[in-house]
């Protein structure tokens, strides 16, 4: 749990670790959607998404697929606005503490983007940066309840 704890404590970690946009980027806006264009042919791994309404969806994807790709291939409601180029936090997911500690640490850029994710937890990650492998087998990946703060009428946002 050590690496999960530091976030709550607010300790600072310096130095980028393996920080790169994941799939190959397409140059033009008309290029094929990126998550359909990458071929991944690892061992099939099955894991669960815990959806925003509390229900569970089990998916099975080849090892090497990112969690975001797995979501898109299985109609799980997760945006990926910047197409895995590490420029947004719309694919925020929450891992189990065990999974969080097992996998590679997030790089600085990912941490910077996670700052902006609503409902941030100590085990939050960007789904585009988490690659499915046997460690995720039969585990659960949770979608945060909210993706932004709603301002219903009457609420006045805090001035900057």
């Amino acid at each position: 749990m050590a690496s999960a704890m530091w976030r709550l404590g607010g300790l600072l970690r310096v130095g980028a670790v393996n920080c790169k946009p994941r799939p190959q980027q397409n140059a033009g806006a008309l290029a094929m959607r990126w998550h359909n264009s990458r071929v991944v042919d690892g061992e099939p791994i099955s894991f669960h998404f815990k959806l925003r309404d509390g229900s569970r969806k089990t998916v099975c994807v080849p090892s090497g697929t990112t969690v975001l790709e797995a979501a898109h291939q299985n109609q799980v409601d997760l945006e990926g606005a910047c197409e895995a180029s590490l420029a947004c936090s719309t694919c925020h997911v929450i891992l189990t503490p065990e999974n969080y500690d097992q996998i590679e640490e997030p790089c600085e850029k990912e941490e910077d983007l996670l700052d902006l994710a609503p409902c941030l937890t100590p085990t939050s990650r960007l789904a585009c940066q988490v690659v499915v492998d046997e460690r995720l087998k039969d585990k659960e990946v949770t979608l945060p309840a909210m993706t932004v703060n709603f301002y219903v009428d009457g609420h006045v946002p805090t001035p900057h």
Binding site: C88, M146, F150, Y151, P157
Partner: peptide, 18 residues
Amino acid sequence: LKRGPTGIIGSNIGDAKE
């Protein structure tokens, strides 16, 4: 128009869903 002129592209997601 709905939430005032603040926030990033992603801020529109939950807002638009609502």
